[in-house]
């Protein structure tokens, strides 16, 4: 892909994970995860369900707690220190499978809530920023509606705009298109591609292999809580090394 080549990756480290392990009770869900994400990288994480890929990116903004190893996001190590956690969370945007918009607030209020209360941006300025990003995701005319009045695809684009309003340096996507009708997937993917082209550091859990080929500069395949294979998309799809990866690819691309 021509655009992919244009997108620059810097040497600066955005996320550093070393020797990370996580358990749910007795269940060892993430096993010895090591990865480094450079600023500007677009990483797609895929794998069968239950492989721990969502848990991995949820650890990066501490929605899940890890028990061993080290996660450093933007130079801040994630520990039990609440101050650090809130700092990291305000720098890392997250988009969820089920959008998780706040149903009691209008679209505009959804977008201005965190900037006003966390970043202490004046209301007027926050609203201008929100309208800027709502225009960018192509739904400025919905600003005064409530989430319940929007389609799934529109809601997901609002969710992306809401995250962007915090001016994050890293964006996490947790299966952003899995809950959408086929007709709506494209509008969300277009927004994500646009974001990637602007140089946003992105980690994306998704099964949209077209998206991976279009914008990712690295694909990570996980199974049973560990990273099984990672490579640039061309190599990953055309020349997978591990048998598990081959099986997975044959199943999702097989029809």
């Amino acid at each position: 892909m021509a655009e992919a080549a244009k997108m620059q990756v810097s040497d600066e480290v955005a996320i550093q994970i070393t020797g990370m392990n996580k358990w749910y009770g007795q269940f060892h869900v993430l096993r010895d995860i090591n990865m480094t994400v450079q600023r500007g990288e677009r990483i797609v994480i895929c794998g069968p369900s239950g492989s721990g890929k969502s848990t991995l990116i949820r650890c990066i903004n501490r929605l899940e707690e890890h028990q061993q190893g080290q996660i450093i996001v933007d130079g801040t190590e994630l520990t039990n220190d609440l101050k650090n956690i809130d700092k990291v969370r305000s720098e890392v945007g997250m988009v969820f499978q089920h959008f998780n918009l706040f149903p009691h607030l209008t679209i505009l209020e959804n977008c201005t809530l965190a900037p006003i209360w966390v970043r202490k941006v004046p209301k007027k300025e926050a609203e201008e920023t929100a309208m800027h990003f709502l225009t960018k995701v192509k739904i400025p005319e919905q600003a005064h509606k409530y989430p319940g009045q929007l389609s799934g695809g529109q809601q997901q684009r609002v969710a992306i705009a809401r995250s962007l309003c915090m001016k994050p340096r890293i964006m996490l996507f947790d299966e952003p298109t899995s809950a959408l009708d086929p007709e709506m997937i494209k509008e969300v993917l277009d927004t994500m591609i646009q974001l990637a082209e602007e140089g946003m550091t992105m980690l994306c859990v998704t099964h949209e292999m077209g998206f991976a080929q279009a914008v990712a500069n690295r694909v990570i395949f996980m199974d049973q809580g560990q990273i099984v294979e990672q490579n640039e998309p061309k190599e990953f799809f055309n020349n997978p090394k591990s048998d598990r990866t081959k099986l997975f690819l044959s199943q999702i691309l097989g029809h």
Binding site: L63, R89, M94, A114, W117, S163
Partner: peptide
């Protein structure tokens, strides 16, 4: 309330009381 509401609020950096 869906868990997602708590998670979305956390992910935006809102502290507990906010």
């Amino acid at each position: 309330l869906p868990r997602g509401q708590y998670e979305a609020a956390d992910a935006l950096g809102l502290d507990y009381w906010r």
